[in-house]
Design a protein around this nucleic acid. Sequence first.
DNA 1: TCATTTTGCTAGTTTAGCTAGCGATATCGG
DNA 2: CCGATATCGCTAGCTAAACTAGCAAAATGA
Lengths: 156, 156
Amino acid sequence: MHQPWSPQTPHDEAVLQVLQAVRAFSDTMDRMHGGMKGDMEMNASDLSALRMLIMREQRGQTVSPHDVAEHLQISTASTTKLLDRLTRSGHVERRPHPSDGRARIIVLTDESRRSFFRHFGERLQSMRGVAVRYTDAELRVITRFLSELGDVLDGH
Amino acid sequence: MHQPWSPQTPHDEAVLQVLQAVRAFSDTMDRMHGGMKGDMEMNASDLSALRMLIMREQRGQTVSPHDVAEHLQISTASTTKLLDRLTRSGHVERRPHPSDGRARIIVLTDESRRSFFRHFGERLQSMRGVAVRYTDAELRVITRFLSELGDVLDGH
DNA sequence: TCATTTTGCTAGTTTAGCTAGCGATATCGG
DNA sequence: CCGATATCGCTAGCTAAACTAGCAAAATGA
């Protein structure tokens, strides 16, 4: 089987199902990202870079070309070209790093942020529509679960 | 701001946070998939196809080259080459479709399934480690939430 | 039946990834 | 402080993976 043991108790069963749901959700996200790629006329990695920039910006973190390369697991040379594309299409700008003369920081343009949320907005609303039907307590449990999952996966 | 309204109530706040957590999790999954790509010496779309095949197999669904093209949003021509690569590297086999003479069905090899779970297994264990610390009831809520989210996103 | 659609493929082109290596800056050891 | 070494992002040139166009074979439907 795919899972190395079979569920013995209701709790085992619930654990199994939640992991299954996580993977199914991940599968859906894959498919959604494919759709956005078509909508926004971008290739998969350019879009993935954009998602990363949005995420980091929201956390108040700056992003260097090196960070992009690491996130996507592509070479820094490929990253240069990727950033050339995103710059040419008006999605990002390269700014000098304030303290490191070699480094750059990559910033999203207003237009890019707007465009992203314009395309993503409808799906975001759908997701909100799901979320509002849960109680505060339930939402906090879900939030905590997802955060913890993220932490252990980033730990690798 | 990124969200078109600011939270008024604790419930609004909880909704906002869960959506934020979903996006952060999606970001982590992106990064994890990048890592697996390196580990398994595959490119991003080949690996994404493999994930899709694992998922569909687990649901008892068959997969055609057309399905792969649709999932990844790439042309059927690119899909042919992608499947050539996966076939050459021993990950999949093309079988004739039982009733449609034009069509093929794509099946995973045992070796591929094993290899996937060998590389994914450690992370799966980490995720299980998180999940077991939740009660049955909590896990069921989380499972339901993720399923509903998947449903509305697939609805688009 | 005969036209139309669907499926997966080949051929040829364009795009995006890689390796190697470089100039400029930063960092560390003596 | 200065020389050695590491890091950052880039260019050049090559390889891999996407795209468009179009085709044969099978399915669908008028």
